[in-house]
Write a protein that binds this DNA or RNA. Structure first.
Length: 480
RNA sequence: GUCCCCGUCGUCUAGGGGUCUAGGACACCGGGUUUUCAUCCCGGCAACAGGGGUUCGAAUCCCCUCGGGGAUGCCA
């Protein structure tokens, strides 16, 4: 069994394509299939090597591994379509020789005019087959005008194409209504997708084509090509589409659609893969937080959803938060570090175990990795400027006594070894304050905020020095 | 317009003739824990698109309507 993912390197890896890649990968794991990566770069204007590199990089980041591909090699290469033009040329020559395809001299402007005319008349545009039977003299005349022909596939009349799709079931198309003879080679000699995709799929011995549903209407064209060429047809599984909140095809205006951006914002690859898999699939147990191996064990081509799914950014966030909390502390610390650096914190000189304590204290408040600077600031900064709420608390008359006592203790009887354990207790004992009147001013002094991890956790991590600096600062500002 | 796909809570879904007063999850709303926030726990709200069949019995099978989406490119 051989599966494939065939991205077009015309931009970043889109979330919808990522889902196709992920599902193919999951299915490959499930069935022990070979995973082939093929780069479909025949759109010479838009395809770039940079884009290809970034897509491959994003796929690797997602944890997807392929057995054959442009970088990995394999027995069925080359794996870039731009490097396979000589192969396609042979098939084109055969089609032309057998009169299953023909040269078309209609210009883009002429075609455009016909299309507009059809659309204004409320008709479907079907190429009328104008160039189907051109005589040699006519051809010569057209060539003399400097026209470069395209190659059109001659769609046979009255052929039925039945796709027994693994997801959609039996889908029937009549050759008469797929839009007429379609172009398979551009006038500059570069073949088009609908033509070569089937050649490559059969040449690369792909047994199952798992791709987006948007390809379903084009499938009969591909099957017809295969028939004309006498090539075998792979089995198909067309995945339902991913939609935006307004139920149209997911695009930028709905939110983030680039895998790369999710990566940079601090989504975990495992969480994204998990979420993408759940978009159109459910475990028998109803569990939703599942690792790749477990999903691969349970998923099947036949139990994927038939209907389109709306991408729920909120649920992805929730799931990411779950992964952040469940992750191994050392590993999640490594993942958080770049986000702290980006926010301007130099963590290289910090004690690793201390940093892990910080991360452990704040990870519960993070849904994405980039949330961390906001929450870790109270440990990493030297002084915390109290926010409006905290300032108001520190202005309270009852807080004055707490501030004064904290200042007296921290500059007197408390030290490195006793601070963590005794600070709060002694303030309570010596001021008589308790409950909110005790904890809130202390919290405000130490963290500049009324919210955050428990003081019992916070104070020991902060340590004597930071507590002292902060209390002195607050004392200077709010005492008296 | 034409062809194709799809239609269960707001969203992702479970369900595949009786076990469905339709289950779970996110979101939302309450409550509890946390003397704070987050987490966590408990509870609540909320759906079979509509109409016809078939059947003793339909969310489940069939047909029609409506709705949504995709394709209809010298893009992929």
């Amino acid at each position: 069994m051989r599966l494939r993912f065939a991205p077009s390197p015309t931009g970043y890896l889109h979330i919808g394509n990522a889902r196709t890649a992920v599902l193919n990968y999951l299915l490959a794991r499930k069935y022990g299939a070979t995973y082939v990566l093929r780069v479909e770069d025949t759109d010479m204007e838009r395809s770039t090597r940079e884009s290809e590199a970034s897509i491959l990089d994003d796929l690797r980041w997602l944890g997807i591994r392929w057995n054959e591909g442009p970088d990995a090699g394999g027995d069925f290469g080359p794996y870039r379509q731009s490097e396979r033009f000589d192969i396609y040329k042979k098939y084109t020559d055969v089609l032309l020789a057998e009169k299953k395809a023909y040269h078309c001299y209609c210009s883009q402007d002429e075609l455009e005019a016909m299309r507009r005319e059809a659309s204004e008349a409320g008709r479907a545009f079907v190429y009328p087959g104008k160039c189907r039977r051109l005589g040699d003299t006519e051809r010569a005349a057209l060539e003399a005008q400097g026209r470069k022909p395209t190659v059109r596939f001659l769609v046979p009349d009255d052929e039925t194409v039945v796709i027994n799709d693994h997801i959609k079931g039996r889908v029937v198309f009549e050759s008469g209504n797929i839009g007429g003879d379609f172009i398979i080679v551009r006038s500059d000699g570069v073949p088009v997708y609908n033509y070569i995709v089937i050649i490559d799929d059969t040449l690369m011995k792909i047994t199952h084509v798992v791709r987006g549903e948007d390809h379903l209407p084009n499938t009969p064209k591909q099957v017809l090509i295969a028939r004309a060429l006498g090539l075998p047809v792979p089995e198909y599984a067309h995945l339902s589409l991913v939609l935006g909140s307004d139920r149209s095809k997911l695009s930028k205006r709905h939110g983030i659609t680039s895998v790369d951006v999710y990566r940079r914002e601090g989504y975990l690859a495992d969480a994204l893969v998990n979420y993408l898999a759940m978009l159109g699939w459910a475990a028998e147990s109803g569990e939703e937080i599942l690792g790749v191996e477990e999903i691969a064990r349970q998923i099947e081509m036949g139990n994927l959803a038939r209907s389109a799914a709306v991408f729920d950014f909120q649920k992805l966030r929730w799931m990411n938060g779950m992964y952040i909390r469940a992750c191994d502390l050392g590993k999640i610390t490594d993942l958080f570090i770049p986000h702290l650096s980006d926010a301007g914190y130099d963590v290289s000189g910090l004690d690793r175990s201390w940093l892990e304590r910080v991360i452990d204290a704040v990870r519960g408040n993070c849904e994405v990795l980039s949330d961390v600077p906001r929450h870790a600031a109270l440990f990493l900064d030297e002084i915390m400027e109290p926010d409006a709420e905290a300032s108001a608390m520190l202005e309270e008359p009852d807080s004055k006594a707490v501030i004064a006592e904290a200042y007296r203790l921290i500059t007197g009887e408390l030290n490195e070894t006793t601070c963590a354990a005794e600070l709060v207790g002694r303030i309570k004992k010596n001021t008589g304050m308790k409950g909110k009147k005790l904890f809130m001013p202390v919290r405000a002094m130490l963290t500049g905020s009324l919210h955050g991890p428990e003081l019992d956790v916070t104070v020991p991590i902060l340590g004597y020095e930071k507590c002292r600096k902060r209390i002195e600062y607050i004392h200077g500002r709010f005492a008296g």
